[in-house]
């Protein structure tokens, strides 16, 4: 059961990691919520050094995106031009994120930076998911109500200069918002070891006003490119990408996601979502508690 990780320089129980990544992949296949921001803190909880967890997780997200993008591309639900533009932003943001990561590592503050980002984002996402699921459950009990898609007809994306036509999305918008959005997601991806779909998809719908049918495929394209780049940069600058850990995570994640997607139709997805939201909130609270609680040991060694 034990395998030695060559970069983390520690033996781990590979079955445990396989089950964890499979379980998270299953949940993301089932609910459509990405796996990175659940799996990375889990890896840190079981003792993988935070920099290794974050850097290696990038490669797993690249793999799951590649797996999903293939099906999306066959259905022609990818706006390649928009994806490329988001990727350009993502490259800048990702490079910035990895540099920040490297700097924080040098200052010995990387674990705290990662924890802080997770507390903020896990807390916000968990709370949002919980509220959304609760209201969805309440609706189920009464008459079915169609979810209204409240979005403004024109956003800032339509007013800024440098406008470009996006035929697949049926849009004529400025290229600045997609670039900025891509950069923000790329930076988060590098620092947190997440894909960033939780931020990218709502922004594509509400800010860029893309048709909902193509946002998933397009976001997968951007995440695939950015995570491949982040993996490269992490390997070159921080040298914390563990090939063995990556292989276990990819196998578990890809298999789990496939099973999740197949079983998705047969399980009460809304209840699972609530469970997932609770899990995310609990992780945020645990990470926050570890930051504010007076430590048992005041000194840390590195």
């Amino acid at each position: 059961m034990s395998i030695y990780l060559p970069i983390a320089e520690m033996p781990v129980n590979w079955l445990l990691i396989f089950v964890l990544s499979g379980g998270v992949g299953f949940l993301s296949g089932l609910t459509g919520v990405g796996g990175g921001f659940i799996l990375t803190p889990l890896l840190i909880f079981i003792g993988i050094p935070a920099p290794v967890a974050v850097a290696t997780q990038a490669s797993q997200i690249a793999a799951t995106s590649a797996s999903g993008l293939w099906a999306q591309a066959r259905r022609n639900s990818v706006d390649w031009r928009m994806g490329l533009l988001l990727t350009c932003g993502g490259v800048i943001g990702g490079a910035f994120g990895v540099t920040l990561f490297q700097q924080a590592m040098r200052l010995g503050q990387i674990d705290i930076v990662i924890s802080l980002f997770y507390v903020v984002f896990l807390g916000a996402i968990g709370a949002m998911m919980l509220m959304e699921s609760a209201s969805a459950l309440r609706r189920d009990k009464g008459a079915p109500v169609r979810m209204p898609l409240n979005r403004p007809a024109r956003t800032i994306a339509h007013r800024l200069p440098l406008q470009l036509r996006f035929p697949r999305s049926g849009l004529y918008i400025s290229i600045i918002p997609p670039l900025v959005l891509g950069a923000a997601v790329g930076a988060l991806a590098a620092i947190m070891g997440v894909g960033g779909a939780f931020l990218l998809i709502p922004a594509m719908i509400y800010l860029l006003r893309m048709p909902t049918s193509i946002v998933v495929g397009t976001s997968m394209f951007q995440i695939l490119c950015v995570m491949a780049l982040v993996t490269m940069l992490q390997a070159m600058l921080t040298q914390r990408v563990d090939l063995v850990l990556s292989a276990i995570l990819i196998t578990g994640g890809v298999l789990g996601a496939q099973f999740g997607a197949r079983l998705g139709a047969r399980l009460p997805a809304e209840q699972v979502r609530i469970l997932l939201a609770a899990l995310i909130l609990l992780s945020a609270i645990k990470l926050f508690w570890d930051l504010v609680r007076p430590p048992d040991e005041l000194y840390v060694l590195s």
Partner: peptide, 29 residues
């Protein structure tokens, strides 16, 4: 693995990325 990661980080990163994308694409297929 350790030598590749520390002495030729560019090739090591490239290898990890190719394996990851190949695995994802292969699984989908």
């Amino acid at each position: 693995v350790h030598m590749a990661a520390t002495r030729t980080p560019f090739l090591y990163g490239l290898f990890v990325v190719i394996v990851a994308l190949g695995a994802g694409w292969g699984a989908a297929l």
